[in-house]
Design a protein around this nucleic acid. Structure first.
Length: 310
DNA sequence: AAGACGAAAGTGGTTGA
DNA sequence: TCAACAACTTTCGTCTT
């Protein structure tokens, strides 16, 4: 193994002068101060490759990594991309007489990449998916999940007779529930600019055909999101969840809209712990009315014997 | 003046004959 | 296919802080 010493800009705690640098000795797996020779750290991890390559060809052959695979690009991000720079793999300029050839190659590569109708459909759907997901500020994992659901729907031919937008919105809604960070149908419908009925219908259909059976969402899953939108402390959110656990034990949540129950529990928790929010505020973030909160929280307070002092 | 309360009527979706 | 039904909403007048 060759000895690689990499300059490392960190000061030695011993001699502590800014001018002295330390070096990493991967042979001995130590970090050493160049000034006083102190071993600063041992058994460091060598982040580099364990193989050696003598030229570019070998390097390409031996390296085992590349761009990560993703489901959010229609070809999973694995296709060849001919970039726009007129440079070859060494970074040298491509001679003028070859430019035209490269230009044609580039054009055809683009055309082939999204060749048939299915591919184009997928490409379109995935951009749509991404657009809606970013409007709802959903994490990347959910987009991947939604993309997977959408791909399966395409494979089963479930798109026929349904709009791409509708199915991608349904896929996204399903993905949210699968990952336990549910959005309401209303929220998805709003972001996708479609009506809720349509998405709901499509979702049910897709879920049935793909054998995605999800348990009904529990109110608890809504607490963190509503809680943080209301700037409630973790303590209050925990209290709301505690209330919901008790409520679920006593069957007070079944048949009720989960958002309504979650809103009521949050309201109760906020009052009990002195972090008061008005019914109006809670109702707004939960997407229900004050009346629903009142009905729910009356029930909860009565059955769980929680005293509400207002 | 804002928030909470509750009655009454209306809406959209599910269920079962 | 249709009526019954429960949950939820809208609206509004009243009470409380």
């Amino acid at each position: 193994m060759e000895e690689r010493k990499v300059e490392y800009t960190e000061n030695c705690p011993e001699c502590n002068s800014t001018s002295t640098s330390v070096s990493r000795d991967y042979e001995r797996a130590e970090i050493i101060c160049n000034g006083c020779g102190l071993v600063i750290d041992e058994k460091i991890i060598d982040g580099g490759p364990e193989w050696r390559a003598f030229d570019h060809e070998q390097r390409m052959k031996r390296s085992r990594t590349g761009a990560p695979m993703t489901y959010t690009i229609h070809d999973k991000g694995l296709s060849t991309v001919i970039d726009w720079r007129n440079k070859d793999s060494y970074g040298k300029d491509i001679p003028a007489r070859k430019r035209a050839q490269i230009y044609r190659l580039r054009k055809w590569q683009q055309r082939i990449r999204v060749s048939n109708a299915t591919e184009r459909n997928l490409a379109f759907a995935l951009t749509e998916l991404d657009k809606v997901a970013s409007r709802l500020s959903l994490p990347k994992g959910i987009r991947e999940q939604a993309a997977i659901v959408y791909r399966k729907a395409v494979e089963k031919g479930l798109i026929r007779g349904r709009s791409i937008e509708g199915v991608s919105a349904a896929a996204l809604y399903a993905a949210c529930r699968m990952c336990s960070i549910p959005r309401t149908l209303d929220e998805v419908a709003d972001a996708a600019k479609l009506n809720r009925k349509e998405i709901g219908r499509t979702y049910r259909f897709v879920a049935r055909e793909l054998d995605i059976n999800l348990k009904p969402t529990t109110p608890i899953e809504y607490v963190p999101r509503f809680g943080s939108e209301l700037n409630l402390s973790g303590k209050t959110q925990a209290k709301a969840i505690e209330v919901l656990r008790l409520a679920m034990d006593k069957e007070l949540t079944s048949g009720r809209g989960p958002t309504g129950v979650a809103a009521a529990a949050i309201y109760i928790a906020s009052v009990v712990l002195g972090e008061r929010r008005t019914q109006r505020e809670v109702a707004d973030v939960a997407g229900v009315t004050e009346v629903t909160i009142r009905n729910r929280y009356k029930e909860l307070a009565e059955k769980l014997k929680i005293d509400i002092v207002i």
